[in-house]
């Protein structure tokens, strides 16, 4: 056994717990005198600790996955690939179709087929009102319609409720745009989609403050 080993432990005296405590208390209080080669061990531990902190930090920074709760691949960096992680865009036609068929909404009168009920509810399929000016159509759905209206050569006389914000249905502009886009592309209709911004503009600017339903004559005055 080397002399260094001899130094590293001490006898416990009479071997009792009291001497055990006393010897170790002395060892803890009085650091071993720096003899030749004796301080190597603490230095080694300090070096190991620093090296592991260094390695650990690099490991963590490298595999931090953006510190993002939604990243499960440690190599993924959300900053470099921010675009791919967006919520799937809403499909206006699918959303519109669901709104159209909601109980109490459009399909109640105009039917799921878009053909309406002859003499009572006008059709939407191939209707000049649907495929024509989107400005008229937006207003019609936002605030509703009363009185006579001529569709595909037939005259109908009824009342349609408004669907926009503030009405009984309280549909958002997005919903109105979606349902209009839907009816303009279904049943053989092929009119361009309706923009949400246009609905918002119609509601808040051109027809701001309007609460009562339109009449066909009023609407025809709009381009």
């Amino acid at each position: 056994m080397s002399s260094q080993d001899q130094d590293s432990t001490r006898p416990l005296g009479d071997g009792s717990d009291a001497s055990l405590q006393a010897v170790h208390a002395d060892l803890a209080a009085n650091k071993p005198e720096p003899k030749d080669g004796y301080s190597v061990l603490p230095l080694f531990l300090l070096g190991l600790l620093s090296a592991l902190i260094f390695v650990g930090s690099i490991y963590f920074v490298h595999y931090r996955g953006g510190i993002d709760p939604l990243v499960y691949d440690e190599r993924f960096d959300p900053k470099k690939a921010a675009k791919t992680a967006t919520v799937a865009a809403v499909d206006p036609i699918a959303a519109g179709k669901r709104l159209y068929n909601q109980p109490g909404a459009c399909a109640t009168c105009h039917q799921a087929t878009g053909l309406g009920v002859p003499g009572v509810f006008p059709p939407l399929a191939a209707s000049e009102w649907v495929t024509g000016s989107d400005e008229r159509l937006i207003r019609l759905v936002l605030h509703g319609l009363v009185g006579e209206i001529k569709v595909k050569g037939n005259t109908y006389n009824g009342a349609m409720p408004g669907f926009g914000l503030g009405s009984g249905f309280n549909w958002s502009d997005e919903k109105v745009a979606h349902v209009l886009t839907y009816i303009r592309s279904e049943w053989g209709n092929a009119a361009p989609a309706v923009d949400v911004a246009k609905v918002t503009a119609a509601r808040t600017q051109a027809a701001a403050g309007r609460t009562k339903p339109w009449t066909a004559v009023e609407l025809e005055a709009i381009p």
Binding site: D5, L45, V55, G56, F60, Y63, G65, I67, V71, E74
Partner: peptide, 28 residues
């Protein structure tokens, strides 16, 4: 989340120092 696991692994490296202390306390 990947970062939780990475942090945990990185900090578990430091337990190797604890082990070294145990080793040089007990083994000699």
């Amino acid at each position: 989340p990947a970062w939780v696991v990475s942090l945990s692994i990185a900090l578990s490296f430091l337990l190797l120092v604890v082990l070294s202390v145990w080793a040089c306390n007990l083994v000699p």
